[in-house]
Structure formats: C-alpha cells, structure tokens
C-alpha cells in the first residue's frame, strides 16, 4: 500500500470517505492513484464496497396503516390535555360585580378578612400570655396606691385601734343651759 496514504491518516477511514464521496479533491486524487497502482488497496475498497451494498438487503419496514391517523389523533388529544393543564384559571371561580359594574374576584377580600382575623386572634392570645407570665406590681398594689393619702394621714396602727375602741368622736357639743 502507498506510504503516503499510511502517513496521512487511517487508510480505511480515507477509503471509506472516498467511497462516500466525502474526501476533498486532492485526497481523492491520492486514493485514485493508490487504487490504480496497488492491488491490495483495490481489494480492500472492493470488499468495503460489497459489504456496504449487502446492507441494501436489510428490510425497511413501513409504518402500519393506522399509524398516521393514530399519531394525529394522539397529537390532538395531547394538545387538548395540555391546553387544559395550562389554562389560566384551572378551577371555576366566583365572580362578583362591583358597584361600578367591573368584574372582580372575591378572592382578595376573603384573603384580607382571613388575615385580619388571624392577626386579631394572635394578638389576643399574645396579650394573655404576657399578662400571665409577667404580673405588674403596680397593678397588684393599686388599692394601696389609691388610698395612700388617707393612710398617711392616719399615721400608725395604734390610732386605728384606739379609734375602734372609743368609736367616732362627736365634735358637736351640746349647747350649755343657762
């Protein structure tokens, strides 16, 4: 076989590309020169070509008679299901007409009311929790604070005991008889 071909890459690849008409013009001329001068290259090309031609015997089954109709029907069905799956409003929604006649969905209103309720309930329980966990000493002493001035005026407990024993003093004096 020619040394030039051996050096320029895989011989078989070149021969196959030559048979397939995929070789550049210059490389194709090289192969043709080798074919003319080298019986081994000619034999190799002949075998490659015959093996390739045998592939013409392979069966080429056609699609069955119903293939086309079945495929087109499947495509239509798939498109319908896709349209349904990707529709903007997949589930029926309640539509409300506002006073100015515009159509609106009640969904935002429901969400808003629900949010407010949740926040109110949360605040109620949070308040209770705070009151239970940290009692205010000022609230506990509220009765004392309210009467602080009176208690300061009384002075001490001895006075209160004396007051209880004698009863309230009557400051109104009887006018002296003349």
């Amino acid at each position: 076989m020619s040394d030039e071909l051996e050096q320029s890459g895989s011989l078989t690849a070149k021969l196959v590309a030559y048979l397939d008409g995929e070789l550049p013009e210059a490389a194709a001329r090289d192969v043709e020169q080798s074919l003319a001068s080298d019986p081994e290259v000619r034999a190799e090309v002949e075998k490659l070509n015959r093996a390739w031609e045998l592939l013409d015997l392979l069966p080429r089954p056609s699609a069955s008679g119903e293939f086309s109709n079945r495929t087109l029907a499947t495509m239509k069905a798939a498109e319908v299901s896709t349209d349904f799956a990707f529709t903007d409003e997949p589930t029926p929604t309640v539509v409300v007409k506002t006073q100015n006649g515009k159509v609106s969905s009640p969904k935002p209103l429901i969400v808003w009311i629900t949010s407010m309720l949740v926040i109110a309930v949360f605040c109620f329980f949070l308040g209770r929790l705070v009151r239970q966990s940290s009692p205010d000493p000022l609230l506990d002493d509220l009765p004392l604070i309210e009467n602080l001035d009176l208690y300061q005026e009384i002075g001490d407990a001895e006075f209160l005991r004396d007051f209880q024993r004698r009863g309230p003093r009557d400051d109104r004096r009887q006018p002296e008889r003349r």
Binding site: S10, T12, V16, A17, E22, L48, A51, W52, L54, L55
Partner: peptide, 12 residues
C-alpha cells in the same frame, strides 16, 4: 468519519 470507518471495517 471515524465512526463510519470503524463501522464499515467491522461490517467487512
């Protein structure tokens, strides 16, 4: 090119 070359060589 390389794939087809090997394939045709295998077939041969």
């Amino acid at each position: 090119k390389s794939l087809l070359s090997r394939a045709r060589e295998n077939l041969r």
